[in-house]
Structure formats: structure tokens, C-alpha cells
């Protein structure tokens, strides 16, 4: 019945929505930033533990739609063990993939995150996927205040 949506709602997204990874408060986090999408009311808190420029742990709390929950869940998985510089590069690549600015983006380079490429066909939903990454970007730049997609 929802054949048209297969590119947007892939099984991986349903899986992460049902069982979000790293969904917990991190007591020893040294970065904590709140992300907010005023358009839909989605709110998430991202926790990071960064030591010597390496993201040793990442977790989140909050509620959102399947796209935003899957996006932040996948993100926390993929950035663990990455350096801050590598995470920033991923942010840029992810942003380009979801906003469709770069048609020939190397989907292999961002691995699992490619399941979210479908949002670029749904302009109203792009912010759902990018909220997590904007929040990460703010955390990496050590902006303590909450950030908003608007």
C-alpha cells in the first residue's frame, strides 16, 4: 500500500525507530546539546564523551518521528570512535546527501547513513533527518546552548 514510500521508510529506519541504539542519559558526558525542530516539536538531547579529539561515546534522549529517531540512532552508532574532524566531514557529507546539493555524493563513504538519502525527495521531512546532525555540529563546536533547525 505504501510502495511509493519504500525509499523513504526503509526497513533499517523502522528497526532503529522501534529499537533506538544508544538511547540513554550519559552521566559522564562532557558535551551535551539540545536540538529542537520548532516545525514539529521534535526535541532531542545529544550526549558526547570526547577525549583527545576522539568521540569515545555518544548517546541521546528525546522523542521524534521515525526519520529523526532513526537518524540520531544511526548517527550515535557511526560517530563512536571517530575523531572530531572525521565527524565534521560526515556532517558535511550527510547534509549534502539529504539536501541533494551533490548528486554524485559517494554513498559508500557514509555507509549505513545512505538509508536516509530518500528524504531529499521529501523537502518537508529533510529537517527530521538533519536535526541530529545539526545538534552534533553544535556539540562539536562546543556551543552549549540548544540549537534549532529554524
Amino acid at each position: 500500500m505504501f510502495d511509493d514510500l519504500r525509499d523513504l521508510y526503509q526497513e533499517v529506519i523502522f528497526d532503529h525507530n522501534r529499537n533506538p541504539r544508544n538511547f540513554r542519559v550519559m552521566d559522564d558526558a562532557n558535551r551535551q546539546v539540545e536540538g529542537f525542530n520548532p516545525l514539529c516539536g521534535d526535541r532531542l538531547t545529544l550526549f558526547l564523551k570526547i577525549e583527545d579529539g576522539v568521540i569515545n561515546d555518544a548517546s541521546f534522549q528525546g522523542q521524534g518521528c521515525a526519520i529523526s529517531t532513526a537518524s540520531v540512532s544511526l548517527m550515535t552508532e557511526i560517530i563512536k570512535g571517530k575523531t572530531e574532524a572525521e565527524a565534521e566531514t560526515l556532517f558535511t557529507q550527510f547534509h549534502e546527501m539529504t539536501t541533494g546539493k551533490s548528486e554524485d555524493i559517494q554513498l559508500e563513504a557514509i555507509g549505513k547513513l545512505a538509508v536516509l538519502a530518500g528524504v531529499r525527495e521529501y523537502p518537508a521531512r529533510v529537517k527530521c533527518a538533519t536535526l541530529a546532525w545539526h545538534t552534533l555540529d553544535a556539540a562539536l563546536k562546543n556551543q552549549a546552548q540548544s540549537i534549532s533547525t529554524e
Binding site: F2, D4, L5, L8, Y9, C40, G41, C65, I67
Partner: peptide, 22 residues
Amino acid sequence: RIHPHDIGTMLDSLGIAIRAGH
């Protein structure tokens, strides 16, 4: 367990226009 925005997008794919949000 299903966010209104997901409801909105899924119904839209069936030609149904509803509002999802605050």
C-alpha cells in the same frame, strides 16, 4: 508509537492531506 509527521507523510502517499504538527 507513531509520530504525527510519519502519519502525515504516509497518508500523503495515499493522496490524503491532513495536518501534522502543533
